[in-house]
C-alpha cells in the first residue's frame, strides 16, 4: 500500500454534532455525515500527515482495532470521500488550497 496524503477539500461546511461530522458540499449543497471513526480521519486530514500515520496515532489507540485492517478501511473511506469531492487524496503532500478552509470543530 503506497503512502497517501489526505486533505479536507476547501469550500466545505462542516460541524461535529454528537461526535459525528456533518459536511455540506460546496459544489451542490449535498449533506453528508461521517461516523465517529471517519470523523477522526477527516479532522486529521491536514495534507501533511499520511493516512498511515493518522490511523496509527488516532484510530488504532482510540478504537482498539487491528492496524492493517484499519488502514485498509481508512484508504477505502478516503477514496470514497474523494469521489464525493469532500477529501483530496494524493501520493504527495497537499498544500492548503484556500485560506478560508479552517479546522472543523
Amino acid at each position: 500500500m503506497s503512502k497517501l496524503y489526505i486533505a479536507r477539500s476547501p469550500k466545505l461546511a462542516a460541524r461535529v454534532l454528537d461526535g459525528e461530522m456533518m459536511i455540506m458540499s460546496g459544489q451542490d449543497s449535498t449533506l453528508f455525515t461521517l461516523n465517529k471513526t471517519a470523523t477522526v480521519i477527516w479532522q486529521a486530514a491536514d495534507g501533511k500527515t499520511t493516512l498511515e500515520e493518522i490511523v496509527e496515532r488516532r484510530i488504532v489507540p482510540e478504537f482498539e482495532i487491528d492496524a492493517d485492517a484499519a488502514l485498509q478501511d481508512a484508504e477505502t473511506l478516503a477514496r470514497e470521500l474523494a469521489s464525493h469531492g469532500i477529501l483530496q487524496v494524493s501520493e504527495e503532500p497537499i498544500a492548503p488550497a484556500n485560506p478560508a478552509a479552517g479546522d472543523a470543530q
Binding site: 461546511a13 478560508a100 478552509a101
Partner: peptide, 28 residues
C-alpha cells in the same frame, strides 16, 4: 468560512459586482 460554517447570505445585491461575486465564490 475559516470556522467552516455553512454560510448563507441575504442581500439586495446593489453593491455586488464581478469582483465581489468572485470573492463570495472563492470563500465557498
Amino acid at each position: 468560512r475559516q470556522l467552516t460554517f455553512c454560510v448563507k447570505l441575504k442581500t439586495n445585491g446593489v453593491l455586488i459586482r464581478e469582483r465581489e461575486a468572485a470573492r463570495i465564490r472563492d470563500l465557498g
